[in-house]
Nucleic acid binder design. Structure first.
Length: 274
DNA sequence: GCATTACCCTGAAAGC
DNA sequence: TGCTTTCAGGGTAATG
C-alpha cells in the first residue's frame, strides 16, 4: 500500500532509468482502473516524446515529457510500477505499458484497481481536479507544530482522521499515521480540539521523522510494494505498532491494541498514547 | 462546513 | 482439503 515514502522511493529509483527515454508506443489492457485509461490520448500526446523529469506530489507520481505533457500515476492500494525489458511477457493485471527506446518497458500493474493513470498539461497540473484539493507536503518544507495547529483550526474530529485527510496534509496513509501517533504519544481517537502547542509540535516532529526514516529504509513492504527495480522496502522492521496487535509495546511493555476508526485499523499503546 | 459511513476491488489469510 | 468469509485501505460520494 504505497504511501508518500513508497512513492518517493519509487520516484528516486525511476528517475535515472526514465530520464531522456523516448516513448515508442503505449499499450493498455485489462479492466478499467478507478477511471478508464484514455489510450488514444496517451498515444497522441506521449509517443515520440522523451521524459524530462520524474516528480512526486502527495501519493501521485508525475512523469514530465517534452512538449509540456505529464503522465500522472497513482498506485492506489496494490499498484506496482516497474521498468522491465521490452520483451518481458505481459502479466495479469497489467493496465498500462509504455514501450521506451533502449528496449525498455514501463509497466503498471494494479490487481485491486484503485490506481489512476492520466495525462495532463504540465503547466495546468495544479488545476487538475485530482490534484487541486491536495493538502500541503509534509516534508518540503518539514511540517512544524504551528502549521499543523493551523490546519486543525475549526475541527473537532479524531486525530487519526485529521492525519489521514489528504486535503490537509498530503501523503500520510494508515501505516505512517499510526506510527507517527505512537511516536508523538498521542491517542488516535483523541479530538484535535484538545491539543496544545506542545502536542502539535510533537506530532509534527513525529510525522516528519517517521516519513524520513521510511524513505531512508526504502519504504514499507507488507504485500505489494517494490521500487522500479523490484527491490522491497525495509521499514516494516522499524514499525512499532502497525499490525502488532497483542505484542508488547517497545516502550512500556503493555499490549498493543487494535482499534477500528471509520473502517480503518488503528494500532496503539493505550498506556503510552493519551 | 464538518464528521462519518459506504463503496469501489482482488488476493491473501483466516475460519469452518 | 476445499470452500466461504473477512480483511486490507486511498479517494470520493452520499448521508447525518
Amino acid at each position: 500500500m504505497p504511501e508518500l515514502p513508497e512513492v518517493e522511493v519509487l520516484r528516486r529509483s525511476l528517475a535515472p532509468r526514465l530520464l531522456g527515454r523516448r516513448v515508442a508506443w503505449v499499450e493498455t489492457g485489462g479492466k478499467p482502473l478507478r477511471e478508464p485509461i484514455a489510450r488514444a490520448r496517451l498515444r497522441r500526446e506521449l509517443v515520440g516524446r522523451a521524459v524530462v523529469a520524474v516528480r512526486r506530489r502527495a501519493k501521485y507520481l508525475w512523469v514530465d515529457f517534452e512538449g509540456g505533457r505529464t503522465l500522472v500515476l497513482h498506485l492506489g492500494m496494490s499498484g506496482r510500477l516497474t521498468v522491465v525489458p521490452a520483451t518481458t511477457p505481459r502479466e495479469p493485471h497489467e493496465h498500462l505499458s509504455l514501450l521506451l527506446d533502449g528496449g525498455l518497458r514501463l509497466r503498471l500493474r494494479d490487481p485491486r484497481r484503485f490506481g489512476l493513470a492520466f495525462v495532463a498539461a504540465t503547466d495546468a497540473l495544479t488545476f487538475d481536479p485530482h490534484l487541486a484539493g491536495l493538502g500541503r507536503e509534509p516534508l518540503d518544507p518539514p511540517l512544524d507544530g504551528a502549521a499543523l495547529a493551523g490546519l486543525s483550526r475549526g475541527r473537532r474530529g479524531p486525530l487519526k482522521a485529521f492525519l489521514l485527510d489528504g486535503r490537509l496534509v498530503a501523503g500520510v496513509g494508515n501505516i505512517y499515521a499510526c506510527e507517527a501517533l505512537f511516536r508523538a504519544r498521542l491517542h488516535p481517537a483523541r479530538s484535535v480540539a484538545t491539543l496544545r502547542a506542545e502536542h502539535w509540535r510533537r506530532l509534527a516532529e513525529a510525522v516528519v521523522a517517521v516519513l524520513e526514516r521510511a524513505i531512508a529504509a526504502g519504504g514499507t513492504t507488507l504485500n505489494d510494494f517494490a521500487d522500479a527495480d523490484g527491490r522491497e522496502g525495509l521499514f516494516q522492521v522499524d514499525m512499532a505498532v502497525y499490525g502488532r496487535a497483542g505484542e508488547p509495546c517497545t516502550t512500556c511493555g503493555a499490549r498493543i491494541r487494535r482499534l477500528v476508526q471509520a473502517g480503518r485499523s488503528s494500532y496503539l499503546c493505550g498506556r503510552c498514547q493519551r
